[in-house]
Every structure is written in C-alpha cells, then in structure tokens.
Simulated assay, not measured.
Amino acid sequence: MRALDELFNRSAFSAPVTVTAELRTVTLVMNVIVPTPVASAVGCSVYIAGFLDRLDGGLPQWNPGGVVMTQVSPIQWTNTSTGRDGTQLEYKYTLGSRDSVEKGAACEELANRQLTLTYGASGV
C-alpha cells in the first residue's frame, strides 16, 4: 500500500500486514419447560449435556451432570452461554445422569438436538 500527501507525492510501499478476522460472539440462551412429574420431583435439577466444549468457558463434552440449568419457575429452566458465530452443537437435556436423558413419549431414545449459533441482528 502507498500513501499520497496533499501534493500527490507517493510514499514507499508499506510492509504487508496479515490479519485474521475473529468470528463474532453469540449469546446462547436455552430455555426448557419440563413435564409436571419432573417439575414436582423434590431436589430435581435439569442439566444440558452435549458438545458444550465448543462453547466459551471450558464446558464439558457429554457430561450428563456437568452443566446445571437455573430454575426460573416450577417448570422452566434456563442457561446462558456464549460461543462463536457458526458453531454447531448437539445436545440433550438430562436430570444429571446417563439414565435420565430426555426420552420420547414411549420412553424411546430421542436423537440429539442440534443447533448452529448465528449472530443475527442482535448476537443473541
């Protein structure tokens, strides 16, 4: 690159610079409504397990009791994390053990939930 002054004198070429653009940070807010039998269980907590190590903060990968959600009502739980735009996740909700991951209506194993972080208009 070269510069020009007001008299149109050209400078020598500047040294090249290499830069890498950082991906934008996305705030991920996860909310879950749990069924009434789960909500009424005394001392019950809801967790998230999955490829959470792809998010910021050193979260564990597929630890069913590693990331506890915050209870905001008798049936609603929430968790807020951050990660980079474009990060792909797979996850499930659990009650803290591999025996208590979310199941379907007939107690069948459900496929992992999937999402991709997208910055969008607000970054949330």
Rank of each mutant, 00 (worst) to 15 (best):
F8R: 14
Q61E: 07
V101T: 13
V67R: 00
V42E: 02
G120M: 00
A21R: 13
R98L: 13
N112L: 04
Y93L: 10
Q114N: 05
V32F: 00
E109H: 03
D53M: 13
V29M: 10
P74F: 10
P60A: 11
S97R: 06
V68D: 01
S73R: 09
Q71K: 12
N31Y: 00
M30A: 08
R84E: 12
L28Y: 09
M69T: 05
P74T: 15
S45E: 09
V26Y: 00
Q61H: 10
E90L: 13
F13C: 12
T80V: 15
T20Y: 03
D99L: 11
A21H: 02
T25Y: 00
P64G: 13
E90C: 13
T36F: 12
M1F: 03
N31G: 11
Y91Q: 09
E109I: 12
A12Y: 02
D5K: 11
A105L: 02
T27F: 00
G123A: 09
V42S: 04
A21L: 06
T87Y: 04
D53V: 12
F8M: 09
A111L: 04
N112W: 00
T116V: 11
T18P: 08
Y91H: 04
T118I: 05
G104T: 03
T20Q: 11
D53T: 15
T87D: 04
G86N: 13
Y119L: 01
C107M: 07
V29S: 13
S97E: 06
I75P: 03
S45W: 04
T27M: 01
E90D: 15
P64R: 03
Q114R: 11
S97K: 07
P64Q: 10
L117S: 03
G83L: 04
N79Y: 09
A12V: 05
W62M: 09
D5P: 06
R24Y: 00
S81Y: 05
G43H: 11
V26F: 03
M69G: 09
E102I: 02
E90P: 09
V72K: 06
T94Q: 08
F8P: 03
T82E: 08
T70N: 12
V38I: 14
D56I: 11
V26D: 14
Y93D: 08
C107D: 14
N79V: 15
E22C: 01
D56E: 15
Q114P: 03
L28G: 08
G83Q: 09
Q114C: 02
L28A: 14
L117H: 01
P60R: 03
V32G: 09
A3I: 08
T94L: 08
Y119K: 01
P37Y: 06
D5F: 02
V19R: 15
R84F: 09
D5S: 10
S100I: 08
V26S: 04
Q61W: 06
V68K: 14
D85F: 05
N31M: 06
P16G: 06
L55V: 13
N112Y: 02
K92S: 01
T27S: 13
T118M: 02
L115K: 03
E6F: 14
V29N: 12
V42M: 07
A15T: 08
Y119I: 00
M69Y: 02
A15F: 06
P74I: 07
E102T: 09
E108F: 00
P64Y: 05
Y93H: 07
